[in-house]
């Protein structure tokens, strides 16, 4: 064995093989999306010069705020290897209830209104999280059922009272309509949320444990991580953000019917997955999910500006989602193969 000592020493030095390019690409998903975003933007602007106008850019920026918020929450849930299909219904319920608060208390401060939205969402998340985490039932089935239930509740209440712009104070509608330093206030809120949650996801034990749970649930148990509590919290945060998104939705559209937010759960999942959040949990960033939402929205706008029927956006979103999962899978398979062959080559030294 001693003749291998020299090799052993050099082996120690080179034990960290050069990361294959393909693996690097995975890590720079955010960059790739940003690049795609720019390409779509420039391409469309060339075709339709009005696309690059200020008002159009503002449209690009305010449109996705709601989706960004729920995509951020959805990301937390997906990272723990679950899925939350209730977010669309929560947006609807929260939008309505916030409006209802204004009907009864027209002088409610904007901040309180937003807090009401958050509270409504968090309450929904509390229910979902409790069932998923403690009854140990697949989140897909549970949230599918709750999607119905919350949407039904929403519709029942909405049928009682209609809410429209006349019920809402100008200050609240301003949140949806006004700008601050050239950027819509809604987008500022989304940016702040992305920054705060993104920072939190990197820097606290609890959030890192969420990644650990999604990455290897068995090892997470062995490491003594409170798995159920973390999954529960992920759902509560997801609900709260969907609630906030609902309040902003109301501010943006100033009217609310029983279909508000319908289908947003799919947009949120698509945004997260396109943004590089692994559907099987364990990896992905908040920034990526937000960029994913921005990207999907920009494509929609670009389709409209490019003279393509707006009916394309749903198809494109679905296709992008499928492509994103397929790409992730391809990269994983490729990198595993590279590593297997590399392992052999190192063995042959």
């Amino acid at each position: 064995m001693s003749q291998h000592l020299d090799e052993a020493l050099s082996g120690a030095a080179t034990a960290n093989p050069k990361t294959p390019f393909i693996l690097k690409l995975v890590r720079f998903r955010e960059f790739a999306i940003l690049l795609a975003l720019v390409l779509v933007f420039v391409g469309t602007s060339l075709k339709n010069t009005s696309f690059a106008s200020t008002s159009s850019i503002q449209g690009l920026l305010s449109g996705p705020a709601v989706i960004i918020l729920i995509a951020v929450g959805e990301t937390l849930v997906i990272i723990t290897r679950n899925v939350d299909l209730t977010v669309g219904s929560v947006v609807g319920l929260s939008a309505y209830l916030v409006g209802d608060v204004y009907v009864h208390y027209p002088h409610t401060p904007v901040l309180v209104a937003l807090l009401v939205g958050i509270a409504v969402g968090a309450a929904c998340g509390l229910v979902t999280g409790t069932i998923v985490a403690y009854a140990r039932v697949p989140s897909l089935a549970v949230t599918l059922g709750l999607l119905y239930i919350i949407r039904g509740l929403d519709a029942v209440i909405v049928n009682a009272v209609q809410i429209n712009a006349t019920s809402l104070p100008a200050g609240f509608i301003g949140v949806g309509a006004n700008n601050f330093i050239g950027i819509p206030i809604m987008m500022w809120i989304a940016i702040i949320v992305v920054a705060v949650v993104g920072y939190a996801m990197r820097n606290f034990r609890a959030t890192r444990e969420m990644y650990a749970i999604g990455s290897n649930p068995e090892a997470a148990l062995l490491a003594g991580i409170p798995v159920q509590r973390r999954i529960f919290s992920a759902f509560v945060v997801s609900g709260a953000l969907a609630g906030l998104a609902g309040a902003l939705w109301l501010a943006e559209f100033a009217t609310v019917g029983s279909t508000a937010g319908t289908g947003y759960e799919l947009d949120a999942v698509a945004a997260a997955v396109v943004g590089g959040v692994a559907i099987f949990g364990g990896s992905g960033t908040i920034l990526g999910a937000a960029l994913g939402a921005l990207f999907l929205n920009t494509i929609n706008q670009a389709l409209v500006a490019g003279g393509v029927s707006s009916f394309w956006d749903q198809a494109v979103a679905g296709l992008l989602l499928v492509l994103a999962i397929a790409l992730d899978r391809y990269l994983v398979v490729r990198s595993e193969r590279i590593l297997r062959v590399e392992g052999r080559d190192r063995g042959r030294h």
């Binding site: 698509a270 559907i279 009916f311 749903q314 979103a317 679905g318 989602l321 499928v322 999962i325 397929a326």
Partner: peptide, 29 residues
């Protein structure tokens, strides 16, 4: 997508839920 590429069926069919509905809209406007 599910068998050849080994992708999770829930993610794939959430994607095609959106895709096929979108195609339906494109076809009929």
């Amino acid at each position: 997508l599910i068998t050849r590429f080994g992708l999770p069926s829930i993610a794939v069919t959430i994607g095609t839920l959106s895709l096929y509905r979108g195609l339906a809209s494109i076809i009929l406007g």
